[in-house]
Write a protein that binds this DNA or RNA. Structure first.
Lengths: 188, 188
DNA sequence: CGCAATCTACCTACTTAATGGTAGACAATC
DNA sequence: GATTGTCTACCATTAAGTAGGTAGATTGCG
């Protein structure tokens, strides 16, 4: 019975992604996990500690998925499409991106969290830039464009699509945007 | 009809766009405007009332800007670029999109607000769809793609770019993404 | 016109509930 | 026997919202 911490992380992630970081309380989380409010402080002394642990776990899960995609999918557009599909689950479950939820809080966030989420995005950008560069090299991605700029454009489109299509509860529309995005990356 | 109300709307918008809807209080707003907390309730009985007024004012400002763009800019890509530049101010000021900030709150939001922000996005989508359709008709936008799908893709990219580039405080990167976006709309 | 009634915009002071967080007791376990 | 995890009980602070009042406009009307 050691997974209370894991359970806390899971439920807290759902709460943040569903209502924002300022939008849930330790009382909500305690109720979701079936524990007393004070017990949460044993695992995560402050809410910021919880936030940081949340981002770390979320980033680690994404990092693993990114590595899997690189190993399993050979071509540039295919990899970006697989990357985009990682966001799809959020639309289907009605949950936004954890780091987007935190990013919205912006200036109200402690610097530590702000740095963590910036690192989350920076990781994705670096991975995508490498993927796109490789795609340009092997001819599966259209050349001419700066891979770093392309990477930012890809993350932006997917984050924005998740944000909006969650509101409209429209996985189909999300997939439509993903299709437009991936198609635009192919050589002309 | 004093302009205390307008001042309240202005400062509240800054607060929401900077810290999220749940991330500020009437006390914060009162301090920003230089008024007592209770006086806010005279103008906006509840926080949800304030939120709705905020969205209405924000949507109206965008609607006016959209109309101006349609009148002033003749071609499809130019119009989309002008539309994208509306977001740029947010990046420069470190403020996100008001409706994105609310959308993040998702399920915690009263249905009324959720409907209002859905309508905000729906308005933009409808405008863009018309713009893109016209662009396809006059040959300034590449044909073949569904204008409705393209419109969703455009809004998603810009909302996402604002979200991310605000975090990185990088107007240049936002403009890079906008350039990629607009370029992809031109005929090949 | 004069003037009372009403309205507007703000105030101080308060309520109720929730917030994040703490203190310390108690079992179980290593 | 120390550590771990949970509990009850509490704290100070802050949240949104209310009660009731006041000074100054605005209005209705004899």
């Amino acid at each position: 019975m050691r997974d209370t911490r894991a359970e806390l992380l899971m439920q807290a992630e759902t709460l943040v992604r569903g209502r924002g970081f300022a939008g849930f309380s330790y009382a909500d989380l305690a109720a979701a996990v079936g524990i007393r409010k004070a017990s949460i402080h044993h695992h995560f002394p402050t809410k910021v500690d919880l936030g940081a642990a949340l981002v770390a776990a979320y980033a680690a899960r994404y990092a693993a998925a990114l590595e899997t995609i690189r190993l399993d999918v050979p071509d540039g557009p295919g990899r970006v499409e697989a990357y985009g599909r990682l966001y799809l689950g959020g639309v289907e479950q009605g949950l936004g991106c954890l780091c987007a939820a935190l990013a919205i809080e912006g200036e109200a966030l402690p610097g530590r969290l702000r740095r963590d989420i910036a690192a989350f995005f920076a990781d994705h950008l670096a991975w995508l830039e490498a993927i796109l560069r490789a795609g340009q090299a092997d001819g599966t991605v259209r050349g001419g464009a700066d891979p770093a700029a392309l990477a930012r454009y890809v993350v932006a489109t997917l984050e924005g699509a998740l944000l909006m299509e969650r509101l409209f509860a429209s996985p189909a529309a999300f997939q439509g945007t993903l299709a437009v995005l991936v198609d635009g990356l192919r050589p002309r």
